[in-house]
């Protein structure tokens, strides 16, 4: 790898006295290729080997379509809920002072640190029909666990920090003078928020939404316990991949994975475009 790089003329653009360019870049590229790129290319290669008719048949299979619909639909709803509450949480944590604020701020990262399986069984214990909250809701005829609503609950938990942590730094950066100027010009507080503050926060909120959504689509551990996993109803796409693997139907598993990969790369591209756009528009990344 390093040798081909050198042959292709890969040298630092600016000459530098600092040593180790070839060594560190070579190691980085070799490790990246071995661990990430070559294994991922395997998915593309294996799906290509399926041939288009077979790939299309798996992709348009009713169960595949339903699983993708469940994954993307629940992730979308959860990300929207997170945008709403996540922005409020970020606002409250940055702007207001109240006892316990520091601890609560640290707690927001819990979904990053708590293993997904632990979150999954805990949320199920809360929302199952005989669970902590579930048992209160059952007499009212409301069912959360083992329905798509349960999936949404798990994905809200998983996605929350993405929105809070992307919006928080931007709220910190807002200049008080901007708000003062709006107030001096006669804007009501609500007008200042909707016409001045929210437009400035929009790129960060969009990025947070996209990150939470992308994470939700691929989420597995926290969902499978609470989902009930009923085919066509509450079966998510990652679970269908696992089921196909357990049936040794590698072709179907690969095809579904390829579809999910394509969709998540498309989202990655959108996130990058939002950030590039916001840098041009507002002079800072989200």
């Amino acid at each position: 790898m390093t040798a081909t790089l050198a042959a292709a003329g890969w040298r630092p653009r600016k000459p530098s006295v600092i040593p180790g360019f070839g060594l560190t870049l070579g190691f980085t590229l070799a490790y990246l290729s071995l661990i990430v790129l070559i294994p991922l290319a395997g998915i593309v290669w294996r799906s290509a080997a399926l041939g288009w008719p077979r790939f299309w048949a798996i992709a348009t299979d009713e169960r595949t379509l339903q699983a993708l619909k469940v994954s993307f639909g629940t992730a979308l709803v959860a990300a929207l809920v997170n945008v709403f509450f996540g922005t409020i949480v970020a606002w409250v944590l940055v702007r207001y002072r109240f006892p316990g604020r520091r601890i609560i701020d640290a707690m927001v990262d819990l979904p990053f640190a708590l293993p997904t399986a632990v979150a999954g069984i805990a949320l199920t214990a809360i929302y199952a029909p005989n669970g902590w909250i579930g048992s209160l809701l059952t007499p009212l005829g409301v069912k959360i666990a083992f329905t798509p609503v349960g999936i949404v609950i798990a994905l809200i938990f998983i996605g929350l920090p993405f929105v809070v942590r992307t919006v928080e730094p931007l709220i910190e950066e807002i200049d008080a003078e901007v708000e003062e100027a709006a107030a001096t010009l006669g804007a009501k507080r609500l007008q200042t928020i909707s016409r001045v503050l929210l437009p400035a926060l929009a790129p960060a909120i969009l990025t947070g939404f996209a990150l939470a959504f992308a994470r939700g689509v691929g989420e597995y551990g926290s969902v499978i316990f609470i989902a009930g996993n009923i085919p066509y109803v509450s079966e998510i796409a990652p679970l269908l991949i696992v089921i196909r693997l357990e049936e040794f139907d590698y072709a179907a598993a690969t095809a579904i994975a390829a579809i999910m990969l394509a969709l998540s790369f498309a989202m990655l591209l959108v996130i990058n475009l939002i950030q590039a756009w916001s840098r041009r528009r507002f002079g800072h990344g989200a």
């Binding site: 991922l40 395997g42 998915i43 551990g221």
Partner: peptide
């Protein structure tokens, strides 16, 4: 980070 954990496992099953 943008790949589903299940797919991260799947790539090694295929390999």
């Amino acid at each position: 980070f943008s790949v589903s954990p299940v797919i991260s496992g799947l790539v090694y099953v295929l390999l």
